[in-house]
């Protein structure tokens, strides 16, 4: 234990930076994916249209897309010769947020569609029968399903905070700029510094635990 405390003091500055960047990137990407995902998923869940089942299948497939593949795609988009190369975003936290948002989006979208499901249709019919407009109906569906949607957001955040492949590829694991907890663990493990890797692993678990704890506390209050 004392070894860990000593190490923690030694690397305190760097660890703090890594932890904050991890939280920032993961929270930002989860927020972006949640807003976009929920806004698109709710009408998708409520409406009947021909391509619906194919869209749902596609999102389910994308839920399990390997992060390195997503990393590769975003890398190709942002690299100098890529379509978005002139934005010079590669190896920046913005690139990491883009990659993680794209990874989390199918999870938020797919789970929201299945969560809203039949319950959402019942709420929609109730709202219509009470004279609500389209916008009011969607707002009420989200309000009524907010506890389930918080679980969806928690699942999305879990994917973001634990992901390593995509952020490694588009972030480059640059010390002080794009190094996050997962890439730090991968780096230290490669160097054989298992103690630092385990220490950061514990911090990662603690952060994930506290953020999920806050989300579930919020959910319980709503219930």
């Amino acid at each position: 234990m004392s070894v860990f405390i000593e190490l923690f003091g030694e690397f305190y500055g760097e660890i703090l930076e890594v932890v904050f960047l991890s939280i920032f990137v993961s929270l930002t990407s989860t927020f972006i994916a949640s807003v976009v995902g929920i806004v698109i998923a709710v009408p998708t869940a409520l409406k009947k249209f021909k391509l619906k089942k194919y869209i749902v299948r596609l999102s389910e497939t994308l839920m399990s897309i390997p992060p390195v593949l997503m990393g590769l795609l975003v890398y190709l988009m942002l690299s100098r010769k890529g379509p978005l190369g002139r934005l010079e975003l590669l190896f920046t936290p913005t690139a990491m947020i883009i990659a993680q948002s794209l990874l989390v989006f199918p999870i938020i979208f797919g789970l929201t569609v299945s969560t809203i499901g039949s319950n959402g249709k019942e709420i929609e019919k109730t709202c219509i029968s009470l004279g609500a407009g389209k916008k009011e109906t969607i707002i009420n569906v989200v309000k009524e399903c907010k506890t389930q949607l918080l679980s969806v957001v928690a699942a999305g955040f879990g994917r973001a905070i634990s992901e390593v492949g995509a952020v490694m590829m588009v972030g480059g694991n640059i010390r002080g700029t794009t190094r996050v907890m997962t890439t730090y663990i991968a780096l230290e493990t490669g160097k054989g510094n298992f103690q630092q890797a385990i220490l950061i692993g514990l911090v990662l678990l603690t952060v994930a635990f506290f953020i999920n704890f806050i989300l579930h506390r919020f959910k319980e209050e709503r219930e």
Binding site: E122, I123, K125, T126, S129, L130, G131, N140, K143, E144
Partner: peptide
């Protein structure tokens, strides 16, 4: 028009 369903949904 107003409608009361067979199993009415009440808001939380």
């Amino acid at each position: 028009i107003s409608i009361m369903a067979q199993k009415p949904y009440l808001f939380n």
